[in-house]
């Protein structure tokens, strides 16, 4: 694989049951490209948590993934309500998710910490009332 491969997804915010389809497709593509399994696992988990967040908090958004021989870059952008206190949101256990989300197995305040844990870099840009952009990279080495 010498060239950069770009993948683009629109995440539907209406249907929680479909949340994760983009991440599953990225995983399938990375496998086809011959990316090492441990790198695929990290990307899949980080992206899946991000995708779930988009559906829970922001009514969907767009995901762009760029695969180069050196690293996988992910950009998740939404036009949701934004994050008031990013530092607080990064703490394990802190969550603003409604109870119905908890009953589905998420909303325990693990999403953003998980995304940080499984990526080599992560940057959050968020403006209340405008939306949130999350940038993550995982190195291939």
């Amino acid at each position: 694989m010498n060239n950069t491969v770009k993948l683009h997804y629109i995440v539907d915010g209406e249907d929680f049951t479909r949340a994760g389809e983009a991440s599953a497709d990225v995983k399938k593509n990375l496998r086809k490209l011959g990316v090492p399994p441990d790198v695929i696992r990290k990307v899949a988990i980080a992206l899946y948590e991000g995708e779930i967040n988009m559906v829970i908090h922001a009514n969907g958004g767009v995901i762009d993934v760029e695969v180069s021989p050196e690293c996988i870059s992910m950009a998740l952008k939404d036009q949701g309500k934004g994050i008031e206190d990013v530092e607080k949101a990064m703490q394990e256990g802190y969550s603003t998710a409604p109870d119905e989300v908890r009953s589905l197995g998420f909303g325990a305040g693990m999403g953003l910490p998980n995304m940080k844990k499984y990526t080599d870099s992560m940057k959050i840009e968020s403006t209340v009332g405008v939306g949130t952009n999350v940038y993550m990279t995982v190195s291939i080495s």
Binding site: G20, A24, K27, P37, R41, I45, Y48, L104, G105, F106
Partner: peptide, 15 residues
């Protein structure tokens, strides 16, 4: 004990 499609998706992500 959880039954919804995200259980299958989570399992899939974790191989």
């Amino acid at each position: 004990g959880l039954v919804n499609p995200q259980v299958v998706r989570t399992a899939d992500m974790m191989d």
